[in-house]
């Protein structure tokens, strides 16, 4: 069965020669919450623009709900909701007017628009500010309004390009909770984001792109499992003891007695050890160090996270811009339009 989003050998080379997407292939199934991750410049937004009919591909094929992104663009636009990476609301219009206009452009009619707009205002918690100009909204309110405008026409598929970047933690949590509910109602969600914890919790499947190519895809669980090892972090009581560095001595112990260890790295407090089924090793580790007169101050085991997955496949840690100035542009920071 073909997916609701089907991309095959998709290539995009921009006019200036930049190869933004270099032949990617992936499928999103109907009803899925799909994460599309990658470092800066990986080609995420470029891919979204092609899927949402805003940009022409160079080669390959892409379809949304079985419709070709080029020949059936008009039909696709009726069933998708698109949120840009940059927040886009008309700051001279009120929140309500923004939503109504969106409904009109989606070819909806008066009474249906009104009803839907009231409902959405409530959902994104903007009822009180509905008749204020969006230019006076805080960054978080604008983002929520922007999200609401993508939903006016009850789209089947949502394409969201970093919908929570720059938001404070509460707004972020609220939006993710709302996306979860939408997904439960059957809407397919295609999302790019830097928030891996949320991806881990909510996305059923994800793909990681780097430099225009897909470097990994699968369920969060599978991808983490692929890493293969838990990390055990060991803290030592005194880092230098007679007869050499405690780290060196501990390494010797580990290398001699533990076959399951795949990697050992120095850490601030001692060592980090990678091994399969890390928690089962803990009792033996404690005993072995005791015998060798190495005194542990702490020991902790953690299973791999998507951060580790991301690092493994892209060689980079995902950037997380901390809550930016998005909220500080209040009454006085209104941009001229």
């Amino acid at each position: 069965m073909p997916g609701i989003v089907d991309v095959s050998q998709l290539v995009k080379t921009y006019g200036d020669g930049t190869k933004a997407v270099k032949g990617i292939t992936f499928t999103v199934n109907e009803g899925e919450f799909f994460g599309f991750l990658g470092p800066n410049g990986a080609g995420k937004s470029t891919t979204i623009k092609i899927l949402t009919t805003l940009l022409q591909k160079t080669s390959g094929s892409a379809s949304v709900a079985g419709l070709n992104v080029e020949s059936d663009a008009a039909k696709i636009r009726k069933i998708i909701g698109v949120q840009n990476q940059d927040t886009v609301v008309d700051e001279d219009l009120t929140g309500r007017e923004n939503l109504v206009l969106q409904g009109q452009l989606q070819q909806m009619h008066g009474p249906a628009i009104k009803e839907r707009v009231d409902e959405l205002l409530k959902i994104v918690d903007l009822t009180d500010a509905a008749d204020k100009r969006a230019g006076f909204y805080s960054g978080g309110m604008k983002k929520r309004l922007d999200l609401a405008t993508t939903l006016v026409h009850n789209p089947k598929i949502l394409f969201l390009d970093e919908p929570t970047t720059g938001l404070d933690p509460q707004s972020r949590a609220a939006i993710w909770a709302y996306l979860k509910r939408l997904n439960e109602q059957g809407i397919t969600i295609f999302i790019t984001t830097q928030y891996l914890e949320e991806v881990d919790r909510l996305c059923r499947r994800l793909a990681i792109v780097d430099l225009g190519e897909i470097v990994a895809q699968g369920t969060p669980g599978d991808l983490k499992q692929e890493i293969g090892a838990d990390s055990i972090s060991l803290g030592f009581e005194n880092s230098s003891m007679n007869g050499g560095d405690v780290r060196t001595k501990a390494r010797q112990v580990l290398e001699k007695k533990f076959d399951g260890v795949s990697n050992i790295v120095d850490s601030d407090i001692g060592l980090t050890v990678y091994a399969k089924n890390g928690s089962y090793m803990v009792p033996e580790l404690v005993r072995a160090f005791d015998d060798a007169h190495i005194r542990l101050s702490s020991i902790g085991v953690s299973s791999p996270t998507l951060d580790d997955v991301f690092l493994k496949h892209t060689g980079k840690r995902i950037r997380v811009e901390e809550v930016s100035s998005a909220n500080s542009r209040g009454m006085f920071g209104r941009r001229r339009r």
């Binding site: 008009a74 636009r77 840009n84 989606q106 405008t149």
Partner: peptide
């Protein structure tokens, strides 16, 4: 130009307008 720069044009173009 404002509509192009702000992304509003792109937002409109993603609808059946």
């Amino acid at each position: 130009v404002d509509d192009i720069k702000s992304g509003f044009l792109a937002k409109m173009l993603a609808t059946p307008v």
